[in-house]
Each structure stands twice: as C-alpha cells, then as structure tokens.
C-alpha cells in the first residue's frame, strides 16, 4: 500500500516538475513529432488536404474569369479561402485520430500538462497547413498569373505564417472542444468560420496590398501587425480555455 502511495507521489512530483515553460514546449514538440510520424507513415491527411486545396483553387479559377483568363484581382481572396477550406479537413482528422482506440484518454493520462497537449496539437496542425500552402500558393500564382517577385513571395510567406498561426490556434481549440460532440464535422465548420472572419478579412487585405502594383508598404505593415495581435490574444485565451474544456 505504502509503495503505491510512494509511486503516486513520485508521479505527481514528476508532473509538477513538468510545469516549467520550457518543459511544456518540449512536451508539445514531442506530441507534434508523434503526430507527424504517424502522418508520414500514412500520408493520408497531407494528401487529401493538399489535393483538396488544389481542387478548390482550380474551381475558383474557372468561376472568376474575363475573356477566358482568370481575374488576378480576386486572387488574394481565393488564396485565403482555399487555405481555410482545406485546413478544416485536416483539423477534423488530426484530432479524430486520437479518438480511435481512445488514444485521447492515454494522452490526457500521460504526465504532460494540458497546455502541452494543446500546443503539441497546434504545432501539428500548423505543419500540415504549411504543406497545404506549399500547394495552394503556387497553384494560385499559376492560375491567376500573379508572377510574384522574390520580395513579394517573402512578404506573402510572412502574412500566411501569421494568418496560419491564428487559424491553427483557434481551429485546434475548437476541434478539441468538439472531439466528443455529435455531428462534429459539421459543427466544426459552423463554429470555425465566424471566428476566423477577422483573420480572413485582414489576411485578404494584406495579400491584396502585397500584390498591388506599387506595394503600399505602410498599409501592409498595419494589416500584418493586426494578424500578430490576433495570434497573441487568441493563443493566450486558448491556453486558458483548453484546460476546463477537455478536463472530463
């Protein structure tokens, strides 16, 4: 009996020791690494997300055209919508996996803090989104004839990175929240898009400024700064909300 109590105390001490900020990050990286390893073996999510993103761009490219050529003015909107749509596909799957064989219970019982689990999942989603963007951006560039310069491409990467962080931060939280809900795929889309509206609007505006002929730098910086503020605000809020929401 006393051996059990001691063992329990040892585990608790271990958990307490794992509360430090760096430890949380290390645990999160471990969880993300696990998700990526699983994904690299099956490649299921990446292939479906990437291909779906490409198809969305393709569909948009023949929805908006004049004189048989796609209109490049709508390219920024299409870029973000394609990323957002294909992102939903991955978000649902990456958390759904934890439900198979009740892995989520094992994950919650393991001696890592809840913020680490949340961050780990967010890192995983982020990695998937980056791969999708590597498909979607060239596709948009190709179909809408953007001819991005090196500078524009760099700034676009920055904008997309900030937007994607915001998307993953909120998306992972919502997907985790809905993990045990009924009809969760439909519900995820319904709750995610209204909350993503600010990120999408600001992202589209920043991208539009970016591909404008004379690059209004001041305007672009202001939009990008907004994206950064959104990321920080929602990361902090999500870290707090995650724990009470997946506790039981």
């Amino acid at each position: 009996m006393s051996a059990q109590v001691e063992a329990g105390a040892a585990v608790r001490a271990k958990v307490v020791a794992r509360q430090g900020f760096l430890q949380v990050l290390r645990d999160a990286a471990e969880i993300a690494k696990k998700d990526l390893r699983v994904e690299l073996r099956s490649k299921e999510i990446l292939l479906t997300m990437g291909y779906f993103g490409f198809l969305v761009v393709l569909i948009f490219s023949f929805s908006f055209y004049s004189n048989d050529a796609p209109i490049s003015a709508v390219a920024s909107g299409i870029l973000w919508v394609s990323v957002a749509f294909s992102g939903t596909l991955g978000l649902g799957r990456i958390l759904e996996r934890e439900k198979e064989g009740d892995c989520i219970r094992a994950l919650l019982l393991s001696p890592v803090s809840r913020p680490a689990i949340y961050l780990g999942k967010t890192f995983g989603v982020l990695a998937f989104m980056v791969v999708v963007e590597l498909v979607v951006v060239p596709a948009v560039d190709f179909f809408f004839n953007l001819r991005l310069t090196g500078e524009q491409a760099g700034l676009l990467a920055l904008t997309l990175a900030l937007g994607t962080i915001g998307y993953s931060v909120v998306g992972t939280l919502l997907a985790a929240m809905l993990l045990r809900a009924r009809a969760k795929d439909v519900l995820l889309a319904i709750v995610l898009y209204p909350l993503m509206l600010p990120v999408l609007i600001v992202g589209v505006k920043a991208t539009a400024a970016l591909i404008a002929p004379d690059l209004p730098m001041e305007e672009f910086v202001a939009w990008v700064r907004l994206l950064a503020v959104f990321d920080i605000v929602f990361l902090v809020a999500s870290l707090w909300i995650f724990e009470p929401l997946v506790m039981d």
Binding site: V170, L173, M177, L178, R180, A181, R182, A183, K184, L187, V191, L195, F234, A237, I241, P244, L245, D248
Partner: peptide
C-alpha cells in the same frame, strides 16, 4: 453537440 454541449457553448460565447 450532446453531453458536453454546455461547456462548448460557454467556451464559444467567450471566444
């Protein structure tokens, strides 16, 4: 959403 709908609703209202 079923059993834990109240929690989810509270989280969403906050967001």
């Amino acid at each position: 959403a079923g059993p834990n709908a109240k929690q989810i609703a509270a989280g969403l209202a906050l967001l």
